[in-house]
């Protein structure tokens, strides 16, 4: 198998996503679940960047020498996915923060972080 950087990254991203999901589905501690989700997010981000990576190209930053506005499309990597990932990271942080706030609130009430404690609502 011919390993390349982007393939490694792809595999890594997927693995992280799977591990994150696995943690999110199996861990009982709220903080652990949140943690697992943030790993899942990181994995997703790596995956996206890896998908957009074109071997041999540079970052889409116009520095005037290697990358100029004219050859941007040939030399540099498509900047759009990166912008997307950037946004996703920020949003992911927001979500994680909010989840943590929830964890705190829930913990204040039941003095526990076990997700099985919060099943009053059902059916």
């Amino acid at each position: 198998m011919n390993l390349t950087i982007d393939k490694i990254a792809l595999l890594l991203g997927m693995s992280l996503m799977l591990i994150g999901l696995w943690g999110g589905f199996t861990q009982k501690n709220l903080l652990k679940i949140i943690l697992s989700f943030s790993i899942f997010d990181t994995g997703l981000n790596i995956l996206i960047v890896a998908l957009g990576y074109l071997p041999g190209r540079t970052a889409p930053i116009i520095d005037g020498s290697a990358v100029t506005p004219e050859n941007l499309a040939l030399v540099a990597i498509d900047p759009v996915p990166q912008a997307l990932v950037l946004t996703a990271i920020v949003i992911g942080f927001g979500t994680t923060a909010l989840l943590l706030a929830y964890a705190l609130k829930l913990n204040q009430h039941k003095k526990s972080l076990d997700i099985n404690q919060f099943t009053d609502l059902k059916w």
Binding site: I5, D6, A9, S38, T42, N45, V49, A50, Y53, R57, T58, A59, P60, I61, A76, I77, Q82, V85, L86, I89, V90, G92, F93
Partner: peptide, 16 residues
Amino acid sequence: LILASPDVAMTEAAIG
């Protein structure tokens, strides 16, 4: 960084 996305790298380091 290695995947040629320095801006993402920076954000991830700072936020993540």
